[in-house]
Design a protein around this nucleic acid. Structure first.
Length: 495
RNA sequence: GGGCCGUUAGCUCAGCUGGCAGAGCACCUGACUUUUAAUCAGGUGGUCGCAGGUUCGAGACCUGCACGGCCUACCA
């Protein structure tokens, strides 16, 4: 008999095993299996019985994926892995007649159920002396290699399930992600915030400066944008008297991909009436510190070779001072885009002449300041030019009450005292539209009249916050790429 | 968008100056009643990313394309 081991041949081989099982009356995909213990519970049971000093050994039934098989003459050892861990099966004389026939057809990768008594082998390995074994789902494809795992980054992301099977650390990252989000919810709920959901499909894409995705509603025959921020709807709710609201939601930005950017990502936004940006600052550091303590057991995280300490209070840096000290440029001395651009050219930067002053300042921040902010830091008091939704400082109308939080060289939060003067908000929107449409092709920048109307009913003084959840997860899991903390990151279609 | 690197068996990877397509794991056959990266013996498995070109001869050299990674620019 000539055998081939191309992928097709391996699948063919396994299909034959499947067929043999069926011919012998076994269902290779049964509807259910009742397990009495998880793998780790079975191991624990053995431990307690040994500790009690009794001879009695518990009967268990477990289920999971076969990850290794070692045939030793007339006996076989099988490693079985479930969500809790791993346990070894010994298949020997104790195995029933039917189970023996099933055993013949078992491959690495199959999902099986097994029952028997727990014991410990000569080498102290917790093991089940298997009496019965059933096929729960026959696997038709070979798993990635057991020792090196799955290394191909592209394949890991496209077939995340293989990544999860082959690379044990991956599951941990996503468990941590889940705990981060749970902790954030708990934190907000305990402070009296209520969680809400607002539309993903919106007639205007507002609340941030970003290019939106466009889609179309057939019945309404109307184009919609996928939201680029949660902001404007949440503030409508503040107008409506929900004094503390938050949303953890997916937002979408039709822009470049990088190790810090995915087109869809998860944002926490919260708004608190009768608070200002200083209150929000305290909320952020307390929340992030709490998340870190909850997920890591300490206030520190390892990231890109640094130990980041989230213990409040975080450093506060005046934005203007920070830019001046890291780049040498005092943007307050450059009142317009032209003079600021000149100053930037002088220090060797290439300057896009289409950029307005706000964007030039932003470029100074991301080039000179952001990479240096490894320990948690608030940059405080932003120029009005780059903050259309934030309220002026009472003492300086070129500066708004806004901060961004940075850690690990990444922006993780953005917050301000919300602009609630409808007339001023309308002027700011107009400035934005005028400044952008001149040089932004294919984008229609509109004013959200519906939001302005809401403001006209009166919005209390409010502090607002946005936190990039994916980046927060990157920090506490030590992952340098956003793709490692998103289960199914955006990828180009394979041809 | 630009630069550099990569794409070889199901997986992880070698493949020199152009000269028969390789290893480990997995798979198949056999041996083995306490193994655990089991071991031992034997074996199967390839559109060398795709398309052209140079050459007596291309996995390797040249051109183009696709996909990916890193850096860089832009978007934020």
């Amino acid at each position: 008999m000539t055998k081939q081991t191309s992928l097709e041949a391996i699948t063919e081989e396994r299909l034959q095993k499947l067929e043999r099982l069926r011919q012998q009356g076994f269902n290779p995909y049964p509807n259910r299996y009742r397990r009495s213990h998880t793998a780790s519970e079975a191991v624990a049971l053995l431990g307690t019985q040994e500790a009690a000093g009794t001879e009695e050994r518990g009967e268990v039934s477990v289920a999971g994926r076969v990850t290794a098989r070692r045939d030793m003459g007339k006996i076989s050892f099988i490693d079985l892995r479930d969500g809790s861990g791993k346990i070894q099966l010994l298949c020997s004389n104790a195995l029933g007649e039917e189970a023996r026939r099933v055993l013949k057809e078992i491959d690495i990768g199959d999902i099986i159920g097994a029952s028997g008594k727990v014991f410990r082998t000569r080498t102290k390995e917790p093991t089940i002396e298997t009496t019965d074994i059933v096929m729960l789902a026959k696997s038709l494809r070979p798993l990635p290699e057991k020792w090196h795992g799955l290394a191909d980054v592209d394949k890991r992301h496209r077939q995340r399930y293989l990544d999860l099977i082959a690379n044990p650390g991956v599951k941990e990252i996503f468990e941590t992600r889940s705990r981060v989000i749970a902790k954030v919810r708990q934190f907000m709920n305990r402070r009296g915030f209520i969680e809400v959901e607002t539309p993903v499909l919106q007639p205007e894409a507002g609340g941030a400066l970003a290019r939106p995705f466009v889609t179309h509603h057939n019945a309404l025959d109307q184009d919609f944008y996928l939201r680029i921020a949660l902001e404007l709807h949440l503030k409508r709710l503040i107008v409506g008297g929900l004094e503390r609201v938050y949303e953890i939601g997916r937002i979408f930005r039709n822009e470049g991909l990088s190790h810090k950017h995915n087109p869809e990502f998860t944002m926490l936004e919260c708004y608190q009436a009768y608070a200002d940006y200083r209150d929000v600052m305290k909320l952020v550091e307390s929340m992030v510190a709490g998340v870190c303590r909850k997920t890591r057991g300490s206030l520190t995280a390892q990231f890109v070779g640094h130990e980041i300490n989230f213990k409040p209070p975080w450093k506060r840096l005046d934005l203007r001072e920070a830019v001046k000290s890291f780049s040498g440029i005092d943007y307050a001395e450059c009142p317009d885009a032209a003079s600021l651009g000149n100053a930037m050219v002088k220090i060797g930067m290439t300057v896009d002449p289409n950029k307005d002053r706000g964007r030039l300042i932003d470029e100074l921040i991301s080039t000179y300041v952001e990479p240096n902010l490894v320990q948690p830091t608030f940059l405080v008091d932003y120029p009005r030019d780059m903050s259309p939704l934030a309220k002026n400082r009472p003492d300086n109308d070129r500066v708004v009450e806004r901060f961004e939080a940075f850690a690990g060289g990444m922006e993780i939060a953005n917050a301000f005292t919300e602009l609630n003067d409808p007339g001023e908000q309308r002027r700011r929107f107009r400035e934005q539209v005028a400044g952008r449409s001149a040089h932004t092709e294919g984008e229609e920048w509109t004013i959200d009249e519906d939001y302005l109307e809401a403001l006209e009913y009166g919005m209390p003084p409010t502090g607002g916050l946005g936190v990039g959840i994916d980046r927060l997860v990157m920090l506490v899991t030590g992952q340098e790429s956003i793709r490692e903390v998103i289960l199914f990151p955006q990828l180009r279609d394979k041809p």
